[in-house]
Computed example of a mutant assay.
Amino acid sequence: MKASGFIKNFTAFSAFSIVLISLLSFKTNEKSIVVSKDGKGNFTTVQQAIDAVENGSSSRTKIFVKTGVYKEKIIIPETKGAILLEGENPENTIITYDDFASKKNAEGKDIGTTNSATIFIYSDNFTAKNISFENSSGRVGQAVAVLTSGDRIAFENCRFLGNQDTLYLKGVQDSPDKTKPSRNYFKNCYIEGTTDYIFGAGTAVFENCTIFSKETASYVTAASTPQENEFGLVFIHSKITGNAKENSVYLGRPWRPFAKTVYLDCEIGSVIKPEGWHNWNKPDAEKTAFYAEFNSKGAGAHTSKRVSWSHQLTKEERKKYTADNILKGKDNWNIKKSLK
């Protein structure tokens, strides 16, 4: 073949390849970034990858995190576009840090619970898969592993490791914009802790999850659901277990009035107290909190011994407690699409 003919054919092939790649990119509508500690990816830290995500992008950026322990404090600003943060597997892909509420800042003041988080998720449309999020500070009081404040946030096959205040579903309780939703979905996840280790104002569904109360555990949840929100923390087909002393842990207590927490078709382990719920020494909270169960089973499912101000849902009441109905919102959020 003559050189000119080769060049002509090569040029045509290259043009076709570019068009094909463009079409495939358009079809997947997803950019990719690789994080690897050995320097063989695009970045060596997760925060560097987050910083590289385009602000306000309509397409999702996939950040693939290779096996390793990444000790870093991560902030995902609300300006970022959609992100899929995916690890190789949750046992060996770990994001960890060791801040805690009583740790002193440069001015000698406590940094506080909120600032103790390992990862802050302020953006909307964030999804994580196959990763462990850890606060490794130990039993030193409040020490958050994950804080969520955005909307349409989903986790699948992730682990949340810590002690007190492990998972903070902060929502918008301290924001001027009280109308902004903060919806969270957890599928096949593992969450551990001691006191109030799932807490906050956000609406969240935990489906097929393992909720593990560690040795010194006292309360699983501490919701602060806004009064106008129909749903707070909802556990569906999950396992409530742990290695705490038998009959030593409450299912929840109300951080603020109108707290809402519901367990549906869950296996309740022997660590849970027969009375189930605590009023946080606030009798008035008994009038506003909504604590309920449906079809609990297991050694800790002493439904007849629960506190009088809690509820056992009827089959008809149970019908509205599906993940899709709880989280769909005005924009009909498609959870399955977020987890793809």
Rank of each mutant, 00 (worst) to 15 (best):
G87Y: 07
K8T: 02
Y190P: 04
K328C: 09
N135L: 01
N89A: 12
G171I: 05
V249H: 00
R306P: 05
K2D: 09
K170R: 15
L167F: 15
N243G: 06
V144A: 12
T148C: 10
C209L: 09
K170A: 14
E192S: 11
V220F: 08
Q173W: 14
G68W: 02
D99C: 14
K305R: 12
P77T: 05
A259Q: 05
F126C: 01
W277T: 00
H302V: 02
C266G: 02
H302W: 10
L84M: 10
N55M: 02
Q47S: 11
F231N: 05
D124E: 01
T194Q: 12
P283M: 10
E230L: 02
T114W: 09
N163S: 15
Q47H: 09
T303I: 11
N229Y: 14
K103I: 00
F160L: 08
K340Y: 15
F186W: 04
D124Q: 00
R183P: 07
K129H: 11
A217L: 13
N325A: 06
P283I: 12
A82S: 14
D165E: 15
Q312K: 12
G171M: 05
T303F: 12
E230T: 03
N281E: 15
K109C: 03
I211A: 03
N29F: 12
G329S: 07
I153R: 07
F294Y: 15
T61P: 01
I326T: 00
Y321M: 03
K103A: 09
S22Q: 05
A204M: 10
K2H: 02
K319Y: 04
D38P: 02
Q48T: 08
F133K: 01
G39N: 08
I50D: 02
S25P: 09
T11I: 01
V144C: 12
A299Y: 03
T11M: 04
V262D: 05
R139L: 14
I7C: 00
T44E: 13
T314S: 13
I153V: 14
Q47Y: 11
G138H: 03
D99L: 15
A52F: 10
Y263M: 08
G232I: 06
T261H: 04
A323H: 01
T67P: 00
T261P: 02
A223E: 07
L327D: 06
S102G: 09
V146T: 13
F160A: 08
S102I: 03
V205M: 10
T148Q: 08
S132T: 12
N125L: 09
K40I: 15
F199C: 12
S310M: 04
N115C: 01
L169G: 08
S59K: 08
N157H: 14
S116K: 01
G276L: 01
V220S: 00
K305L: 14
A292L: 06
Q142V: 05
S102F: 04
D98L: 12
G39E: 07
Y97S: 14
S248G: 08
E91V: 12
R152K: 15
N325V: 07
A244C: 07
F160N: 05
Y190Q: 07
L313R: 03
M1E: 02
S36C: 14
